[in-house]
Protein backbone atom coordinates (compact mmCIF):
# COMPACT_ATOMS: atom_id res chain seq x y z
CA UNK A 1 0.00 0.00 0.00
CA UNK A 2 1.36 3.37 -0.92
CA UNK A 3 -0.33 5.95 1.16
CA UNK A 4 2.42 8.47 1.63
CA UNK A 5 1.30 10.73 -1.19
CA UNK A 6 -2.17 11.00 0.25
CA UNK A 7 -1.23 13.30 3.07
CA UNK A 8 -1.31 16.24 0.74
CA UNK A 9 -4.87 15.45 -0.20
CA UNK A 10 -5.95 15.21 3.39
CA UNK A 11 -4.82 18.70 4.24
CA UNK A 12 -7.29 20.43 2.00
CA UNK A 13 -9.77 17.66 1.53
CA UNK A 14 -12.86 19.62 2.46
CA UNK A 15 -15.88 19.23 0.28
CA UNK A 16 -18.69 21.62 0.89
CA UNK A 17 -20.15 20.64 -2.38
CA UNK A 18 -23.77 21.57 -2.39
CA UNK A 19 -25.25 24.81 -1.32
CA UNK A 20 -28.17 24.74 1.00
CA UNK A 21 -30.99 26.98 2.18
CA UNK A 22 -30.68 30.62 1.34
CA UNK A 23 -28.98 30.19 -1.98
CA UNK A 24 -32.03 31.57 -3.73
CA UNK A 25 -32.84 30.93 -7.36
CA UNK A 26 -31.29 27.95 -9.00
CA UNK A 27 -29.17 28.53 -12.03
CA UNK A 28 -30.92 28.04 -15.34
CA UNK A 29 -31.61 24.36 -15.87
CA UNK A 30 -29.94 23.00 -19.01
CA UNK A 31 -32.42 21.36 -21.34
CA UNK A 32 -30.67 18.00 -21.23
CA UNK A 33 -29.55 17.93 -17.63
CA UNK A 34 -28.72 14.38 -16.60
CA UNK A 35 -30.19 12.89 -13.46
CA UNK A 36 -28.02 12.62 -10.41
CA UNK A 37 -27.51 9.55 -8.29
CA UNK A 38 -28.38 10.38 -4.73
CA UNK A 39 -27.72 8.17 -1.71
CA UNK A 40 -28.75 8.83 1.86
CA UNK A 41 -26.50 7.84 4.74
CA UNK A 42 -27.77 7.59 8.30
CA UNK A 43 -25.08 8.46 10.79
CA UNK A 44 -27.04 9.64 13.82
CA UNK A 45 -26.89 7.00 16.57
CA UNK A 46 -30.01 5.52 18.14
CA UNK A 47 -32.43 7.53 16.01
CA UNK A 48 -34.43 5.70 13.34
CA UNK A 49 -36.25 8.15 11.08
CA UNK A 50 -38.65 8.54 8.21
CA UNK A 51 -37.16 10.54 5.33
CA UNK A 52 -39.29 12.96 3.34
CA UNK A 53 -38.16 14.40 0.04
CA UNK A 54 -40.26 17.35 -1.17
CA UNK A 55 -42.94 16.42 1.32
CA UNK A 56 -43.18 12.82 0.16
CA UNK A 57 -42.20 9.95 2.40
CA UNK A 58 -39.28 8.30 0.65
CA UNK A 59 -37.77 6.12 3.36
CA UNK A 60 -39.60 4.54 6.24
CA UNK A 61 -38.01 3.64 9.55
CA UNK A 62 -34.55 4.33 8.15
CA UNK A 63 -32.12 2.86 10.66
CA UNK A 64 -28.84 4.33 11.91
CA UNK A 65 -25.92 2.83 10.04
CA UNK A 66 -27.96 2.19 6.93
CA UNK A 67 -27.36 3.55 3.43
CA UNK A 68 -30.27 4.10 1.06
CA UNK A 69 -30.16 4.54 -2.67
CA UNK A 70 -28.94 5.49 -5.04
CA UNK A 71 -32.02 7.32 -6.22
CA UNK A 72 -32.16 8.86 -9.66
CA UNK A 73 -33.10 12.47 -9.11
CA UNK A 74 -33.35 15.17 -11.74
CA UNK A 75 -31.31 18.30 -11.19
CA UNK A 76 -33.07 20.80 -8.95
CA UNK A 77 -33.77 21.88 -5.41
CA UNK A 78 -35.11 19.50 -2.83
CA UNK A 79 -36.58 19.85 0.62
CA UNK A 80 -35.44 17.07 2.90
CA UNK A 81 -37.05 16.34 6.24
CA UNK A 82 -36.40 13.67 8.85
CA UNK A 83 -39.08 12.70 11.32
CA UNK A 84 -39.31 10.15 14.06
CA UNK A 85 -40.90 7.06 12.49
CA UNK A 86 -44.62 7.61 11.94
CA UNK A 87 -44.66 11.23 13.00
CA UNK A 88 -46.00 13.92 10.65
CA UNK A 89 -43.62 16.02 8.61
CA UNK A 90 -44.67 19.07 10.64
CA UNK A 91 -42.79 17.61 13.58
CA UNK A 92 -39.60 16.97 11.68
CA UNK A 93 -36.53 16.68 13.85
CA UNK A 94 -34.23 17.82 11.07
CA UNK A 95 -34.85 19.64 7.81
CA UNK A 96 -32.80 20.91 4.91
CA UNK A 97 -34.71 23.14 2.51
CA UNK A 98 -33.76 23.90 -1.09
CA UNK A 99 -30.95 21.38 -1.14
CA UNK A 100 -29.36 21.84 -4.52
CA UNK A 101 -28.82 18.70 -6.56
CA UNK A 102 -26.68 19.44 -9.63
CA UNK A 103 -27.11 17.48 -12.85
CA UNK A 104 -25.16 14.35 -13.61
CA UNK A 105 -23.53 14.07 -10.21
CA UNK A 106 -23.21 11.31 -7.64
CA UNK A 107 -24.16 12.62 -4.24
CA UNK A 108 -24.38 11.28 -0.73
CA UNK A 109 -26.55 13.10 1.73
CA UNK A 110 -25.42 12.29 5.25
CA UNK A 111 -27.58 12.80 8.32
CA UNK A 112 -25.08 12.95 11.15
CA UNK A 113 -23.90 14.79 14.24
CA UNK A 114 -21.91 17.98 13.90
CA UNK A 115 -18.73 18.54 15.90
CA UNK A 116 -20.83 19.70 18.86
CA UNK A 117 -23.18 16.73 18.78
CA UNK A 118 -26.16 18.41 17.09
CA UNK A 119 -27.93 16.51 14.28
CA UNK A 120 -27.28 17.99 10.87
CA UNK A 121 -27.40 17.15 7.18
CA UNK A 122 -24.34 17.41 4.95
CA UNK A 123 -24.30 16.69 1.24
CA UNK A 124 -21.12 15.30 -0.29
CA UNK A 125 -20.31 15.00 -3.97
CA UNK A 126 -18.77 11.59 -4.60
CA UNK A 127 -15.70 11.43 -6.79
CA UNK A 128 -16.68 8.86 -9.40
CA UNK A 129 -13.81 9.50 -11.79
CA UNK A 130 -12.28 6.28 -13.09
CA UNK A 131 -9.42 4.86 -11.07
CA UNK A 132 -6.36 3.39 -12.76
CA UNK A 133 -6.24 -0.36 -13.27
CA UNK A 134 -5.21 -2.03 -10.01
CA UNK A 135 -6.32 0.89 -7.85
CA UNK A 136 -9.15 1.61 -5.45
CA UNK A 137 -10.37 4.91 -4.08
CA UNK A 138 -10.64 5.47 -0.35
CA UNK A 139 -12.73 8.38 0.87
CA UNK A 140 -13.02 9.11 4.59
CA UNK A 141 -15.63 11.54 5.90
CA UNK A 142 -15.61 12.99 9.38
CA UNK A 143 -19.26 13.09 10.36
CA UNK A 144 -18.90 12.44 14.08
CA UNK A 145 -19.15 14.57 17.20
CA UNK A 146 -15.43 14.36 17.74
CA UNK A 147 -12.36 16.56 17.40
CA UNK A 148 -9.92 16.45 14.50
CA UNK A 149 -8.63 12.98 13.69
CA UNK A 150 -5.95 11.21 11.70
CA UNK A 151 -6.72 8.10 9.69
CA UNK A 152 -3.99 5.50 9.75
CA UNK A 153 -3.37 2.52 7.52
CA UNK A 154 -0.98 -0.15 8.65
CA UNK A 155 -0.06 2.09 11.59
CA UNK A 156 1.01 5.17 9.66
CA UNK A 157 -1.16 8.25 9.13
CA UNK A 158 -2.59 8.63 5.64
CA UNK A 159 -5.12 11.38 6.19
CA UNK A 160 -4.24 13.95 8.82
CA UNK A 161 -6.17 16.53 10.78
CA UNK A 162 -9.56 15.69 9.30
CA UNK A 163 -12.41 17.67 10.83
CA UNK A 164 -16.21 17.50 10.79
CA UNK A 165 -17.82 17.77 8.17
CA UNK A 166 -14.97 17.27 5.75
CA UNK A 167 -13.53 14.45 3.69
CA UNK A 168 -10.13 13.19 2.65
CA UNK A 169 -9.52 10.86 -0.24
CA UNK A 170 -6.93 9.15 -2.34
CA UNK A 171 -6.45 6.37 -4.87
CA UNK A 172 -4.48 3.46 -3.44
CA UNK A 173 -3.47 -0.04 -4.45
CA UNK A 174 -6.49 -2.32 -4.26
CA UNK A 175 -6.46 -4.91 -1.50
CA UNK A 176 -6.74 -5.33 2.22
CA UNK A 177 -5.48 -2.76 4.66
CA UNK A 178 -5.84 -2.47 8.42
CA UNK A 179 -7.06 1.02 9.25
CA UNK A 180 -7.85 2.93 12.41
CA UNK A 181 -8.76 6.45 13.45
CA UNK A 182 -6.80 8.35 16.10
CA UNK A 183 -7.15 11.77 17.66
CA UNK A 184 -5.15 14.10 15.44
CA UNK A 185 -1.46 14.04 16.22
CA UNK A 186 -1.81 11.31 18.87
CA UNK A 187 -1.80 7.54 19.13
CA UNK A 188 -5.15 7.50 20.89
CA UNK A 189 -7.31 5.14 18.86
CA UNK A 190 -10.95 6.20 18.73
CA UNK A 191 -12.20 3.90 15.97
CA UNK A 192 -10.92 0.50 14.88
CA UNK A 193 -8.65 -0.98 13.86
CA UNK A 194 -10.72 -2.54 11.10
CA UNK A 195 -9.78 -4.52 8.02
CA UNK A 196 -10.68 -2.58 4.93
CA UNK A 197 -11.05 -4.58 1.74
CA UNK A 198 -10.51 -1.94 -0.91
CA UNK A 199 -11.81 -3.56 -4.07
CA UNK A 200 -10.20 -2.66 -7.34
CA UNK A 201 -12.22 -0.25 -9.43
CA UNK A 202 -14.44 0.88 -6.55
CA UNK A 203 -14.69 3.83 -4.23
CA UNK A 204 -15.07 2.87 -0.59
CA UNK A 205 -16.52 5.74 1.40
CA UNK A 206 -16.13 5.44 5.15
CA UNK A 207 -18.11 7.76 7.43
CA UNK A 208 -16.95 8.21 10.99
CA UNK A 209 -20.20 8.62 12.93
CA UNK A 210 -21.50 8.93 16.45
CA UNK A 211 -20.14 10.85 19.39
CA UNK A 212 -16.87 10.64 21.25
CA UNK A 213 -18.55 11.91 24.40
CA UNK A 214 -21.29 9.28 24.23
CA UNK A 215 -18.68 6.70 23.37
CA UNK A 216 -20.61 5.46 20.38
CA UNK A 217 -18.20 6.32 17.60
CA UNK A 218 -18.65 3.93 14.70
CA UNK A 219 -18.26 3.71 10.95
CA UNK A 220 -20.80 3.53 8.16
CA UNK A 221 -19.52 2.49 4.75
CA UNK A 222 -20.77 3.02 1.24
CA UNK A 223 -19.28 1.51 -1.90
CA UNK A 224 -19.50 2.80 -5.44
CA UNK A 225 -18.39 0.34 -8.09
CA UNK A 226 -17.86 0.53 -11.83
CA UNK A 227 -14.95 2.98 -11.58
CA UNK A 228 -12.43 0.50 -13.01
CA UNK A 229 -10.19 1.09 -16.00
CA UNK A 230 -8.93 -1.57 -18.38
CA UNK A 231 -5.20 -2.29 -18.45
CA UNK A 232 -3.39 -0.14 -21.00
CA UNK A 233 -2.49 -3.13 -23.14
CA UNK A 234 -1.88 -6.86 -23.32
CA UNK A 235 1.75 -7.47 -24.33
CA UNK A 236 1.93 -11.21 -24.93
CA UNK A 237 4.59 -12.07 -27.46
CA UNK A 238 8.24 -11.23 -28.09
CA UNK A 239 9.39 -14.14 -30.24
CA UNK A 240 8.05 -13.38 -33.66
CA UNK A 241 7.39 -17.03 -34.47
CA UNK A 242 3.71 -16.29 -35.03
CA UNK A 243 4.50 -13.36 -37.28
CA UNK A 244 1.86 -13.05 -39.96
CA UNK A 245 3.45 -10.03 -41.58
CA UNK A 246 5.55 -10.30 -44.72
CA UNK A 247 9.16 -9.89 -43.63
CA UNK A 248 12.01 -8.27 -45.51
CA UNK A 249 13.02 -11.69 -46.90
CA UNK A 250 9.65 -11.84 -48.62
CA UNK A 251 10.19 -8.54 -50.34
CA UNK A 252 13.71 -9.65 -51.29
CA UNK A 253 12.34 -12.87 -52.76
CA UNK A 254 9.54 -11.17 -54.61
CA UNK A 255 11.88 -8.42 -55.83
CA UNK A 256 14.50 -10.88 -57.05
CA UNK A 257 11.82 -12.93 -58.78
CA UNK A 258 10.50 -9.87 -60.53
CA UNK A 259 14.00 -8.78 -61.52
CA UNK A 260 14.84 -12.20 -62.94
CA UNK A 261 11.58 -12.22 -64.91
CA UNK A 262 12.19 -8.81 -66.40
CA UNK A 263 15.89 -9.26 -67.17
CA UNK A 264 15.50 -12.83 -68.42
CA UNK A 265 12.45 -11.93 -70.47
CA UNK A 266 14.27 -9.00 -72.02
CA UNK A 267 17.20 -11.22 -72.92
CA UNK A 268 14.89 -13.74 -74.56
CA UNK A 269 13.27 -11.01 -76.61
CA UNK A 270 16.63 -9.49 -77.55
CA UNK A 271 18.12 -12.85 -78.54
CA UNK A 272 15.08 -13.81 -80.61
CA UNK A 273 14.88 -10.50 -82.42
CA UNK A 274 18.67 -10.67 -83.04
CA UNK A 275 18.25 -14.11 -84.64
CA UNK A 276 15.70 -12.87 -87.09
Amino acid sequence: MQFAHLRRVAAGGAVAALTFAGVGVATATPAYAANSKVSVVHGIPDTPVDVYVNGEKTLENFAPGDVAGPLDLPEGQYDIALTKPGEPIGQAILTADDAEVPGGANISIAAHLDADGQPTITPFVNDTAKVDAGKARLIVRHTAAAPAVDVRAGGSPVFEDLTNPNEAKGDVDAGNVSADVVLAGTDTVVIGPADLNLREGTATIVYATGSAEAENLAVVAQTIDGLHSAPSGVPSGTGGQADTGLGTWWYALAGTGLLLLVVGGARVVVVRSGRR
Binding site: G245, G257, L258, L260, R267
Partner: peptide, 28 residues
Protein backbone atom coordinates in the same frame (compact mmCIF):
# COMPACT_ATOMS: atom_id res chain seq x y z
CA UNK B 1 22.50 -16.90 -73.81
CA UNK B 2 18.94 -17.72 -74.59
CA UNK B 3 18.96 -20.73 -72.27
CA UNK B 4 20.33 -18.58 -69.47
CA UNK B 5 17.63 -16.01 -70.01
CA UNK B 6 14.92 -18.64 -69.97
CA UNK B 7 16.33 -20.06 -66.76
CA UNK B 8 16.23 -16.60 -65.23
CA UNK B 9 12.62 -16.23 -66.27
CA UNK B 10 11.78 -19.61 -64.75
CA UNK B 11 13.61 -18.80 -61.51
CA UNK B 12 11.89 -15.44 -61.31
CA UNK B 13 8.50 -17.01 -61.85
CA UNK B 14 9.23 -19.61 -59.17
CA UNK B 15 10.33 -16.97 -56.68
CA UNK B 16 7.22 -14.93 -57.31
CA UNK B 17 5.05 -18.00 -56.95
CA UNK B 18 6.64 -18.85 -53.58
CA UNK B 19 6.21 -15.26 -52.45
CA UNK B 20 2.57 -15.30 -53.49
CA UNK B 21 1.93 -18.57 -51.65
CA UNK B 22 3.57 -17.22 -48.50
CA UNK B 23 1.55 -14.04 -48.73
CA UNK B 24 -1.69 -15.99 -48.99
CA UNK B 25 -0.83 -18.46 -46.22
CA UNK B 26 0.28 -15.82 -43.75
CA UNK B 27 -2.78 -13.70 -44.22
CA UNK B 28 -4.51 -12.99 -40.89
Amino acid sequence: VNRGALAAVAAGAAALAVAAVVAVVSRP
